[in-house]
């Protein structure tokens, strides 16, 4: 089997007791400081998004549930999100966001494939899968941008919208905006890492751990989307 140094690390770890692992002079959870930093940064960033989403919960509960025409009731997602770029005025609720969600999930899958190829030191394989991941990210951000301009065209602003409570628009733009910014940063980082892979930096380094670390960030972005999608499109 094509096991890398990381697998060997894990096998050795299984033989070591917890006491020995934590006795100093080694990595107790068999993870480099860089990987730990990425994990704990992601937890911290999760709390930032949680702050926004919990504020959303408080504001949402403070509004009456949807009733057609009521200026202050919470909009019905099926009414708000019913357009796609290619179907003109057709009424297709939630179809476009389904496409966006699948795009992000698939780009997460391609990211995992990149990480897996990295453990086998397969530079070409890593590059192949990273390209698809970046493309997925770009399609997502592009779609989000289209969604924004469509909603703005329909009259949604941070201070009001024709579908119901003004807070819906404000929260939607801020939270999807923050998420979209994170995706964009991820696309940039992935591109830098793709370039580094191409010029052989990680081959020289002897490991592709950087792919794993940026992979964690990319999955985090996907994970946040699961909850943003739930909050605005489903609930």
């Amino acid at each position: 089997m094509a096991d890398s140094a990381m697998t060997a690390h894990h096998d050795h770890a299984l033989e070591q007791s917890t006491e020995e692992l934590w006795s100093g002079g080694q990595e107790p959870v068999k993870a480099s400081y860089g990987k730990l930093m990425m994990w704990y940064f992601l937890i911290s960033d999760t709390f930032t998004f949680a702050g926004f989403l919990i504020a959303y919960a408080a504001i949402r509960f403070a509004h009456p549930t949807h009733s057609a025409g009521a200026w202050n009731s919470w909009p019905d997602p099926n009414e708000v999100f019913s357009a796609t770029p290619v179907t003109g005025h057709a009424n297709l609720p939630l179809i476009f966001v389904t496409f966006m969600t699948f795009t992000l999930i698939v780009s997460s899958v391609t990211m995992v494939r990149a990480v897996q190829e990295g453990t086998r030191m397969n530079r070409k394989g890593v590059m192949f899968w990273m390209v698809w991941t970046i493309l997925g990210g770009l399609v997502f951000v592009g779609s989000q941008a289209w969604e924004w301009q469509h909603l703005i065209h329909e009259g949604m602003t941070p201070t009001g919208n024709p579908f119901g409570a003004a807070a819906f628009g404000a929260l939607f733009f801020i939270i999807t905006g923050f998420h979209g910014a994170h995706v964009s940063v991820g696309v940039v980082i992935n591109s830098i890492v793709l370039f580094q892979t191409w010029i052989g930096t990680y081959d020289r380094r002897g490991h592709y751990e950087m792919i794993e670390k940026v992979g964690l960030y990319w999955h985090f972005v996907d994970l946040v989307w699961v909850y943003v999608f739930m909050a605005f499109y489903l609930l």
Partner: peptide, 22 residues
């Protein structure tokens, strides 16, 4: 959504293969 989060974290982010304390 919690189920999706579980699958993403455990498989994609590799958490189920990491050591317990992490």
């Amino acid at each position: 959504s919690a189920a999706k989060a579980y699958y993403i974290m455990s498989e994609f982010m590799h958490l189920r293969y990491e050591l317990k304390p992490l």
